[in-house]
Simulated scan of single mutants.
Amino acid sequence: MKEFVVYTALRIALFVGSLALVLGLWWAIAGEVPVLWAVVIAFVLSGLGSLWLLNGPREAFALRVQERASKASKAFEEMKAKEDAD
C-alpha cells in the first residue's frame, strides 16, 4: 500500500508542477491562458516525465503488486488442492 501512495503522490506532484510551469510560461508569453489547453499539455508533459523520473517508484509498486498476486494465487491453489482432497 505504501508504494501505491508514494507513486500516486509523486504523479500528482509531477502533474501540479507541470501545470504550474505551463501556466506560468503561457501567461508570460501570451498574457492570456486557455486553461483547458494548459491542463492537456501539462497532462502530456507529466505523463512523459513520469516515464523517466518515476521509474524507481513504479518498479517498486509493480513488484509489490506482483508479490501480492502470487500470494493470492498460492492461497487459491492451496484451497483448491484441499477441496480436491476432501
Rank of each mutant, 00 (worst) to 15 (best):
M1K: 09
K2R: 08
E3R: 08
V5S: 03
Y7R: 06
T8M: 11
A9C: 09
L10K: 14
L10D: 01
R11N: 15
I12A: 11
F15I: 05
V16K: 02
V16E: 02
G17E: 02
G17K: 11
S18E: 00
S18R: 05
L19H: 05
A20I: 14
L21Y: 02
V22D: 01
L23S: 09
G24N: 13
G24E: 08
L25N: 14
L25K: 02
W27K: 10
A28I: 02
A30W: 11
A30M: 03
V33N: 05
P34K: 10
P34V: 14
V35C: 11
L36H: 09
W37L: 14
W37T: 04
V40W: 08
I41K: 03
I41F: 05
A42R: 01
A42F: 07
L45S: 03
L45N: 07
L45F: 12
S46I: 01
S46L: 03
W52K: 10
N55V: 11
G56W: 13
G56R: 13
P57R: 05
R58C: 11
R58N: 15
R58T: 15
R58M: 12
A60P: 02
A60Y: 00
F61V: 06
A62E: 15
L63E: 04
L63P: 00
R64P: 01
V65G: 05
Q66I: 07
E67A: 13
R68E: 13
A69N: 12
S70H: 09
S70I: 14
K71F: 12
K74V: 04
A75K: 06
A75P: 01
E77I: 10
E77N: 10
M79Y: 05
A81P: 00
D84R: 07
D84C: 09
A85T: 01
